[in-house]
Amino acid sequence: MKIFSITFLVAAITMSSSLWAHSFGHGEVSADEILYIAQKSAKMLTFKDQGMSVGKIDNSWNTIGTGAFKIVEQSDLGFIVKATNDEKNQTLYFEINPNGLVKDVKDASSFSNNHGHNH
């Protein structure tokens, strides 16, 4: 009985480490929210330069529908959302961390030079 109790206690402590890990994930957002954030970021960039690589973008991005925004990459570092503006023949890439913070927005040429592969 004593061996069983000790075994149970040690196993419980060992396995509880997986529960502690969950505390780091509470700030993460869903894929739907990521697309919403990218679309909102595009609107904000039409208004003023937000310090992103792409700078201020054309007002036509305000009318770009949700269908133009797609998640093309997801990793532990976050998401990459690709958005296309057919009117201006422009493609933007939004780098968003797992918590939904937009880290950078690049145009296609700048993104391809730094990213190493195409989407």
Binding site: G67, F69, I71
Partner: peptide
């Protein structure tokens, strides 16, 4: 499960804006 790259997952929320 990972979101499939090049997936067509799209946002369903509409955003209004005004300046």
């Amino acid at each position: 499960e990972q979101v499939t790259p090049n997936s067509t997952k799209q946002s369903e929320d509409t955003q209004d804006f005004v300046v």
